[in-house]
């Protein structure tokens, strides 16, 4: 699945790191999101389930992706996601890498505006909570690909 990624957006599309958070072992979400991204023409590095923060950061430092997609459904995604982005942003090389998160992020159903605001304030470019559908994500990816190519 892994391959050496170039920084330029080429005919290969965006180079995307797709990852779960450290406590979350669900993978159907990752399998489907990988297919969605690949069908849009992008290169996906799927890091799989239960990715420790350090592993995720070291992969990103090596791959320098155009986009980091965090997916979690076990209900810890909000807290794990906040911790994770702080780790990522503590590396100068990854300060500007677009990063989004989605899934079932809390244990009580879709979160409140405040939790979404906290995630955005921490640096996530978009938050796709369960029930949003994939169309919003697809159009986000489309905008990003155009932005990066120009």
């Amino acid at each position: 699945m892994d391959h050496a990624a170039g920084k330029e957006v080429s005919a290969d599309g965006l180079s995307v790191v797709l990852t779960s958070v450290s406590s979350d072992s669900h993978t159907w979400n990752l399998v489907v999101l990988q297919l969605v991204l690949e069908e849009l023409g992008h290169q996906v590095h799927n890091l799989g389930a239960c990715v420790p923060d350090e592993l995720m950061v070291s992969k990103c430092l090596r791959l320098r992706p155009d986009l980091i997609v965090v997916s979690s459904v076990n209900g810890h995604g909000f807290h794990d996601g906040l911790r994770l982005i702080r780790q990522v942003r503590s590396h100068a090389e990854l300060v500007g890498t677009p990063m989004v998160i989605g899934g079932k992020l809390g244990i009580a159903g879709p979160g409140c505006d405040r939790s979404r605001a906290q995630l955005t304030a921490a640096g996530y470019g978009a938050v796709f909570e369960d029930g949003t559908g994939l169309a919003a994500f697809q159009s986000y990816i489309g905008r990003l690909a155009i932005g990066q190519a120009s």
């Binding site: 450290s22 406590s23 979350d24 072992s25 209900g75 810890h76």
Partner: peptide, 12 residues
């Protein structure tokens, strides 16, 4: 049990 305990991540 919760996901942290499952992973042996008792610190979190």
């Amino acid at each position: 049990l919760d996901s942290y305990t499952r992973m042996g991540d008792n610190a979190n």
